[in-house]
Amino acid sequence: MLFLFVALPAAAQHLEDRLADPAQEARARELSRELRCLVCQNQSIEDSNAPLARDLRHIVRERVVAGDSDKAVLDYLVQRYGEWVLLKPRFNARTLLLWLGPALLLILGGGIVFMLYRRQARAQGTPPAALNVDEQRRLDALLRDDEAGK
């Protein structure tokens, strides 16, 4: 009985116009997952229930059936809505910083850590200066007191 109230993690299945060929259908779904729904912006058109998303899924299926390559299908929508419809931005001059940014930050951070580490290691590698006569005498006295205190 309790199970009736458990929300099942239902995979979004839009049955409106499934393609007869399973391979084509799989490709259409794969492509739909890469395209942004322009109404509910952080969902893919595969996940969205918006009417526009449904229309766009329909177009994706049409293009797949027409024999377009994956890139041609995506280009079709990029022409109309801009690169923004792609959930995964393409690698080009404008997105260079976006794609390489994390690696650059990692190199930068790693460099800083490495330098700090080296500086510390060098500091530790130098032996402390020897005690002068006064210091030695004080140390001896302290140690003696310590012994006596026990």
Partner: peptide, 13 residues
């Protein structure tokens, strides 16, 4: 009627 021309115009709202 079916919104296809709208999509060609890049209409989303």
């Amino acid at each position: 009627r079916n919104g296809r021309v709208g999509i060609d115009w890049g209409v989303y709202g």
